[in-house]
């Protein structure tokens, strides 16, 4: 499903070069639930961004669902992000001007679906995360756990084959974190969605099938 070969990522500023990732080789199969662990600055988020086409690797190749993704024009990258990938962020990143259902509909907007189709798909995704009763609320009226469930609904509404979660429980207390984890595991089991999750929490990581550890941008095993 996801295949990284000799991936390297260098950030350059005028004075210094920072090696964020180096020599990463990673194969993730369809339906796997993988955790990525490592201390701060070890390149976890960069790895996720590279897989999700938010960032381009400086060297090496990335295959997503059998497609090489480097060097694709912006329009095609956008299409792949839209159809293959769903993102979940630590700080939720809901758009505060839009209500719950409008937020969830965003990925569908870029698929040119009719508005009733978008509505029903978004409602189904919200039901899946148990928030069907809150569709008219605004993000600021929800608790952190609820906001993250909306964000998950947004990530799965387009039925992507890969979910990329960047510390999805990092801003939540442990009870809410458990809930979110339960949803993710359910998605992995029921829909066979491939999930890559960055986390600091060893207890959560142990629940996943495989743990990838990073240190200073390198894979350690």
């Amino acid at each position: 499903m996801i295949s990284l070969k000799e991936v390297e990522k260098v950030y350059r500023t005028e004075e210094i070069e920072t090696l964020a990732l180096s020599g990463i080789n990673l194969e993730i199969d369809e339906g796997e639930f993988v955790s990525v662990m490592g201390p701060s600055g070890s390149g976890k988020s960069t790895l996720l961004n590279v897989i999700g086409l938010l960032d381009e690797p400086s060297k090496g190749s990335v295959l997503l669902a059998g497609e090489t993704i480097q060097g694709l024009p912006d329009r095609d990258q956008a299409r792949i992000r839209n159809q293959q990938v769903g993102f979940i962020f630590q700080t939720f990143h809901l758009i505060s001007d839009l209500n719950v259902i409008d937020n969830v509909e965003i990925p569908l907007l870029y698929r040119h679906l009719a508005s009733f189709e978008r509505r029903s798909l978004a409602l189904r995704a919200l039901e899946r995360v148990g928030l069907a009763s809150r569709v008219r609320h605004f993000p600021s009226q929800l608790s952190g756990g609820q906001q993250q469930r909306v964000a998950i609904a947004r990530a799965i509404v387009g039925q992507p084959r890969v979910l990329l979660a960047d510390e999805p429980t990092g801003n939540l207390d442990s009870q809410m974190g458990e809930e979110i984890m339960k949803i993710l595991m359910g998605l992995n089991e029921d829909e066979k969605t491939t999930i890559v999750m960055v986390t600091h929490d060893a207890r959560l990581a142990e629940k996943t099938e495989r743990i990838v550890r990073l240190f200073d941008g390198r894979q350690v095993n």
């Binding site: 999700g52 938010l54 912006d74 329009r75 990258q77 956008a78 299409r79 992000r81 839209n82 159809q83 769903g86 993102f87 990143h93 809901l94 758009i95 001007d97 965003i106 990925p107 907007l109 870029y110 698929r111 947004r154 387009g158």
Partner: peptide, 16 residues
């Protein structure tokens, strides 16, 4: 900025 990031992450192209 955050909104733009989200939209990009969920498949908005530059043109859109």
């Amino acid at each position: 900025a955050s909104e733009i990031g989200v939209r990009k992450a969920f498949g908005a192209s530059k043109f859109t």
